[in-house]
């Protein structure tokens, strides 16, 4: 396939203020190919989450897309009317947020939350939805008979996996993950990302992965973009970003992580 799945072209987003506007995203362009994992890294406030929201047009005022295009298989997301947009969200672009495990409705059984999505988008009956739910839960290593439980009966990592299962239940073309594992500890984080990686190989969806943890990103992503103050300052393959960073900011970002093995990056105080 020659055309990439997702193309972001010269995207510029402002937050409108009383007197001045704040430019959160400044002329950013990148592509995500079919089945590829693309990572966006940067500090808080650099605009990476704003891009994530803009892709499924979930951004709210005062955010305003000034210019640019977001093309999914050649179709401009910014031109969709509300009905098309409803159809487009979740079915084509699914999102997993940082606090996704808290986005489950606490008073509904997990089963009902799956049914909600499946009925709205695919008109499934209760029985069909139950079957699909069991299938999806199995994919994320949760026993299907637990679909009758409420969210508080699951651990944080399990809840995050349930949200991922709901996201994948409509076979989206691309999953946008905004810091999906930041609130979890390392072992659970590894288990979840490994599972997503396997599912990606099986079903062939693309992933736009957003985090500030560069080490994790290099492990997980094929290509990485580094953002600084709204601009995409470097874009390269994961190996290059790790082995041969070009931009000064990328180098600085690497230097700010103490590494587990080998010498600490900054001068260590003699004890």
């Amino acid at each position: 396939m020659t055309t990439p799945l997702l193309q972001v072209k010269n995207l510029t987003i402002d937050y409108i203020g009383d007197k001045t506007d704040f430019r959160a995203v400044d002329d950013v362009s990148f592509d995500v190919a079919h089945g590829e994992t693309f990572g966006l890294a940067g500090e808080s406030g650099c605009g990476k989450s704003t891009i994530a929201f803009a892709i499924s047009r979930l951004h709210k005022p005062p955010a305003l897309i000034r210019s640019g295009q977001i093309l999914l298989e050649g179709r401009d997301v910014l031109d969709l009317n509300p009905a098309q947009l409803r159809d487009f969200r979740w079915r084509e672009v699914a999102m997993v947020f940082q606090s996704a495990m808290n986005s489950l409705n606490p008073v509904l059984r997990v089963e009902a939350q799956f049914y909600d999505v499946l009925r709205t988008h695919q008109g499934m009956s209760k029985a069909q939805a139950r079957e699909r739910t069991a299938e999806m839960l199995r994919l994320v290593d949760i026993p299907p008979d637990r679909m009758k439980d409420y969210p508080h009966q699951f651990s944080g990592g399990m809840r995050q996996r349930i949200v991922i299962a709901i996201c994948l239940s409509l076979n989206p073309k691309i999953v946008v993950m905004d810091e999906p594992t930041t609130a979890l500890d390392v072992v659970v984080q590894r288990e979840i990302l490994q599972r997503i990686n396997e599912l990606r190989r099986t079903f062939g969806f693309s992933v736009l992965f957003i985090t500030h943890d560069l080490g994790l990103m290099v492990q997980f992503c094929d290509r990485i973009g580094i953002m600084l103050a709204g601009k995409l300052v470097e874009q390269n393959t994961a190996e290059k970003i790790y082995g041969d960073p070009q931009h000064d900011y990328t180098k600085k970002l690497w230097a700010s992580f103490p590494s587990l093995h080998g010498e600490p990056v900054m001068e260590r105080v003699p004890t």
Partner: peptide, 19 residues
């Protein structure tokens, strides 16, 4: 715990990295 710490040297596709 140590094996799950993100290590840029090891890609997820590497079978050795699998938990």
């Amino acid at each position: 715990l140590l094996s799950a710490v993100p290590d840029p040297e090891m890609r997820f596709d590497d079978p050795k990295a699998q938990l």
